[in-house]
Amino acid sequence: MTEQSIIQLRDLKKAFGAIEVLKGINLDVPNNHCAVVMGGSGSGKSVLIKNIVGLLKPDSGSISVLGKRVDLIQGDELDQLRLSIGYLFQSGALFDSMTVSENLMFFLERHLNLSPKEANDKIMQTLEWVELPEKLNDYPADLSGGQKKRIALARAVIMEPKILLYDEPTTGLDPVSVRMVSDLIVRLQAERGITSVAITHDLLCAEIIADSVHFLQDGQFVASGSLEEISRFDHPAIATFFGNETSHAS
């Protein structure tokens, strides 16, 4: 693999039964870079990043993350690698039987040897960072969509991962929240040197966070480049995508 790639996918293929979802994906994400994946609903974007973290195993091809072959390792070795990866789920995936602080504590106390005071300080610090310290003792069911996303983001970063995978971090949010979450993502990259792959439909979000954009269609990247380049790319699916989406974003 190339020295500088933190995440490297080679000819990644994944099918569910007869449905071939990914038909040969290649991707290189250098250090401190944010690669944005765009594409229509059901095109396999979530399947793609689930492969990166080993939630799904590819049928063929290779996946390297921080020099480790995710497609080959398992058990404790995979778990060890996962500690360096934060994952923001499309639905937030907060544990709904726990309060916000318990959600954050749950990860901390199982992996880091912190004193209760250190752990609490860290939780407060992370909640202040997403500007929701007052939600400490609320249950996820009592949060708005945007607040859930921000708490989920807090949970994804509390272990201080080197890599973050974002599955639609801003979908369903109002423009103010979109900007807020996108700004947090940019700050993570600038302040902590995080490398990330982000899935988004959202042009405003892509514009704020993307270092490169990759357009997924029929199981392959049909175009890669800057958002600017992609939007002018001559491909019917991309034209439809941008044609429909621009009016949403503005």
Partner: peptide, 14 residues
């Protein structure tokens, strides 16, 4: 279905 199980798995929480 709400991906909470995936979230446990990704956090290496078996």
């Amino acid at each position: 279905v709400t991906e909470q199980i995936d979230a446990l798995e990704v956090a290496a929480l078996k």
